[in-house]
Design a protein around this nucleic acid. Structure first.
Lengths: 334, 334
DNA sequence: TTTCGTGTTGACAGCGCTGTCAAGAGCTTT
DNA sequence: AAAGCTCTTGACAGCGCTGTCAACACGAAA
């Protein structure tokens, strides 16, 4: 038999409403009364029924995380941060993986409403889907997007991908590299273009050329990195001395391709990645990459939803990043 | 304004109870009536309030996944399968990461009850915690464990780690290896000993020795694999010609250590892993490893909880595995 | 003294659904 | 024709909690 609020009220000798007040940290409860209730609740091992609470209070104490990210360590980080934040506030996190197609289908709104959550966290690349965001706004579901730049009118938690790419590129340039290859991610991913922007800006600022022949297209997979690496390195004397692949999997692919072609890293070729996923530490040499505070971003997103700020519908939390320098980058060969 | 069951009932011209019956696929509803209700619900974009449903029906339509696994791709697989199964049945999956310490704390039971879920999926290594399982049974929370062998009295979804390790070892032996090194996982992980058992059995069956000097201890991290690899390979002429590391991260570490020491893989040394995580395809050569049907196991676990089987409290779902042969294993050097 | 404000408490009405039970309709069986 | 089925439907009472509102005690202000 589950203990209910009524049991606690009886045990403490007060009304159920008073118990409710104590449990919800409402003001105007005498200290002595509060203590009695806390004691009774403890003795009875009372756990409030969340369904009842949700029904009565019209809040479900649930947040959903919508994602479609093939990168497990990225979503794991997001989840970890979000769950931690939720837990601190008595919320729960429910998972809602979703393909791009599903996110743009006309019935997403219904599907999401059916979840019955208080808010949803939309992670990239889905956070770039205007139709998803519109659907969310349509059904009045509070939401926050995690993205690579602030999104108009939608609360956003973001990290500046362009700035990070700029930093990585400067790191390479500072080491004397001039012929730098670039492996882009898929266009469907908004972060891809942001990273390209940062790269191009840094190159331009340094007065370096960005010939099309040094720009390769990848799709964030290891295999696409291998292909891009082979292409980029098969240019004879004019080959790049450094390659910036815009995620770690592709960078690992580039490194594999380079090794296969007989180039030593970092002596003959420097390689930069992006994301600082576990693989960056598991390949030799270690991969120089951009570390994002993913956990913190997940936590921040959850907090935004839980706190329900008043009046500000479009502000954004900006997060920084770190350049994790490992062995894959070094001075340009002379 | 959210539409309620009352709105649908009015629109369809029936009672709310009839709407409820249709929504829950209860028997004894005239086909014509059912159609009317379905039509009305569709027109109104009706989504049942889960809190109310939970309160009235004493089911929350939520399952929790308890985990403490540092391996993102493992839990991602589990989650993916579980979520998919949940979704098919109108359930939601809530995340409950938990440290080993938290899982053994005296108040887990309360914490879990507080979640208000209908059942919980316990993944390894937490599924080895008797106190957690006992606490779950204590508060009457239905649960299923995902483990490396059936657990007495607890419904279990498992894959035979010993058998898988046996298979990997045989693969190595079949390639002519006799001096095979072994890198164990942490003892806290039940899969560790199962994998060791399988290894030892295969060696014994083949009449091969298992000297202590070829058994190394790791902790499932890349770094521990590097250390184990160095130790195992620093034995001069008596070094192993193959090393079976019991997870992919450690195997990658062993490969890094081997390369660093000047051994070519697989010509000088064969390396086997376990889990078939993404990294197995991202290192060169590709890692021969054991592929577990993690997604399917996650789905099976969820289904067990949703179906609420009658009368059988201790049966188990057994899953098979695959030996994914890649380039890291080859004939023993002559 | 009376009036007023402030802090504290409880009674009570739902929140939106499902479970129980009974009633009515349309059969078949005696 | 009466009795007994089965199928279909609806009335109604909660599930356990929170929100609203009223009641009361007490001290401060008039």
């Amino acid at each position: 038999m589950k203990t209910t609020i009524t049991d606690v009220a009886r045990q403490a000798g007060v009304s159920i409403k008073t118990v409710s007040r104590v449990l919800n940290d409402e003001p105007n409860v005498a200290e002595a009364t509060r203590a009695k209730v806390v004691k009774a609740a403890g003795e009875l091992q009372y756990a409030p029924n969340l369904a009842a609470r949700g029904l009565a209070g019209s809040r479900s104490y649930m947040l959903a995380l919508i994602y479609d990210n093939p990168n497990p360590s990225y979503i794991a980080g997001l989840q970890g941060g979000a769950v931690a934040a939720c837990r601190r506030k008595g919320y729960r996190l429910v998972l809602e993986p979703m393909t791009q197609a599903a996110a743009e289908a006309p019935d997403v709104a219904l599907t999401l409403r059916r979840l019955g959550v208080d808010g949803v966290i939309v992670s990239p690349p889905l956070s770039a889907s205007d139709s998803l965001l519109a659907a969310l706004a349509d059904v009045g579901l509070p939401h926050v997007a995690i993205a690579s730049s602030p999104i108009g009118s939608v609360p956003t938690v973001h990290m500046d991908d362009a700035e990070a790419a700029h930093r990585m590129t400067c790191h390479l340039i500072d080491h004397g590299h001039g012929a730098i290859g670039f492996v882009a991610g898929p266009d469907s991913h908004p972060a891809s273009s942001r990273r390209r922007e940062g790269f191009v800006r840094a190159m331009t600022e340094a007065g370096l050329a960005v010939p099309a022949v040094r720009m390769a297209q990848g799709d964030f997979t290891f295999d696409s990195g291998v292909r891009a690496g082979r292409t980029l390195l098969s240019q004879g004397g004019d080959r790049p001395t450094a390659i910036f692949a815009t995620n770690d999997d592709m960078a690992a692919g580039v490194m594999a391709a380079a090794t296969e072609a007989g180039f030593a890293i970092p002596d003959d070729l420097s390689v930069g990645g992006f994301d600082d996923t576990p693989i960056a530490r598991m390949i030799r040499p270690g991969l120089t990459t951009i570390a994002q505070p993913i956990r913190d971003m997940g936590a921040a997103a959850a907090m935004r939803l839980i706190a329900r700020p008043v009046g500000d519908g479009s502000d954004a939390d900006a997060f920084g990043f770190d350049l994790a320098v490992r062995g894959s980058t070094g001075p340009a060969p002379t």
